[in-house]
Write a protein that binds this DNA or RNA. Structure first.
Lengths: 232, 232
DNA sequence: CAGAACCTTAAGATTTTATTAATGAGACAA
DNA sequence: TTGTCTCATTAATAAAATCTTAAGGTTCTG
């Protein structure tokens, strides 16, 4: 599972450079040149690791780190200029998991990022290799082994197709999934045409069973012209 | 799979040494003692990787790197003297993929060369196109996966066309994009005529949703006779 | 000032999605 | 085999959202 990594550095060249290296490793990168945008992002995206510059124009890197620690648990790596020796202790004390002094070798940074992610996933016992058999979030539980769906403690019985569709939506939650992609993933690589409204009908049935509606969707949202989506 | 490797170093002893080690690994080596000959070679041979010395008598190694990047996509490894610490970031920023400080162990160089070639081939074969899925700057966040737009912490809902237009403008931020180019990129390669004002109407809608105005634009600026532009 | 480029507005054309009902396919038991 | 049941698909229609067009107004530039 590709991790989401937050980068914050006001020196655009450096942020861009780090981005290139992390993209290369198949991470999804959220890059910001100031603290405000970054903090904004943290509340809206699932971030797995942050790389923070200490010196930022608006918000101090340490402050961001502290703000992260208030609500989140992912590792933080601080970037500091070589002269700021004194700050090292401070940064680590405030909750950073590692720090790198500038100028640094990008490959070293990549190595540290990987190390942190490894350490973190290890301690959290998230098995990256094994594919998920159970999805559970905000009142919704999908059990692939039992082929069962629970919504707010109550079991709702879904047909195989309905279950598959809901599974795909849930395992991609937070992201819009197009009808075409749904069709591909649920029915296999069959040909899909727009005149085929079978996905739509199943969505309708799902919503009915989940006591959801198209106008005011609690779960399955329609994103016009794009697809369907379940919020995280 | 024998790769073609370009070596440029005015210190002949070093160039020769590197050559020996790379020949040993069954790479084909193109060796030059100055930048001019190297640049000449680049246009005539298929090069898979370059090892460039920073200090050259005629053309700076960084310049060569930049010239390579203008037309080619292969990895570049820079060789720098240990004192040139400051240049490190610069060199990497200008597009180098790795650097090695002199004196270096030849085997380390060979290892780095292999790593770059591995990374590069992986990068080029696995993923079809590593396009950005997220754009974020100065209070504006565009998330292609969520198909969501945030402006100053507030979500604004855009239609597919509006989203596409804003995406094109943002991914070309700092540059003026003509109506024609917008049309091409958003609608595909359909025919565009000046009597078609649909782009204009969508811009208008975008501005409305962003609480922007044509007279005093905060985001989408009109560049008279040219097109539209978003500042970086 | 005149013409060109751009802005605004709103109607109706088009596209996409929702709903509903009917048909068909397959499983399973009598 | 036949009838019944469940589920998947299709089709027709309705509803909604979006897109395009066109007309008239405004602003800019030489």
């Amino acid at each position: 599972m590709a991790a989401n990594i937050l980068i914050v550095d006001d020196e655009q060249a450096i942020a861009d450079l780090v981005e290139v290296y992390l993209l290369n490793e198949n991470y999804k990168v959220f890059k910001f040149y100031n603290g405000r945008d970054a903090l904004n992002c943290i509340n809206n995206e699932r971030i797995d690791l942050a790389v923070l510059d200490v010196m930022l124009p608006d918000i101090n890197g340490f402050s961001i780190c502290r703000r992260i620690r208030e609500k989140h648990n992912f590792p933080v790596i601080m970037l500091t200029a070589k002269e700021e020796e004194i700050d090292k202790i401070t940064g680590l004390t405030l909750g950073a998991d590692d720090y790198i002094t500038k100028p640094f070798r990008p490959l070293e940074l990549v190595a540290r990022v990987k190390a942190q992610l490894r350490r973190f996933t290890k301690y959290n016992s998230m098995e990256p290799a094994k594919e998920e058999r159970l999805i559970a979030f905000s009142g919704l539980v999908l059990d692939m082994d039992k082929h069962e769906c629970m919504l707010n403690e109550k079991k709702i019985s879904l047909t195989p197709t309905e279950f598959s569709i809901l599974w795909v939506l849930c395992s991609n939650r937070g992201r819009v999934v197009s009808s075409e992609e749904l069709f591909q993933k649920v029915w296999g690589d069959k040909y899909f045409s727009n005149s085929n409204n079978t996905v739509m009908v199943h969505i309708r049935h799902l919503r009915e069973k989940m006591h959801d509606s198209a106008e005011h969707p609690k779960y399955i949202k329609t994103v016009w012209g794009v697809g369907y989506k379940i919020e995280r």
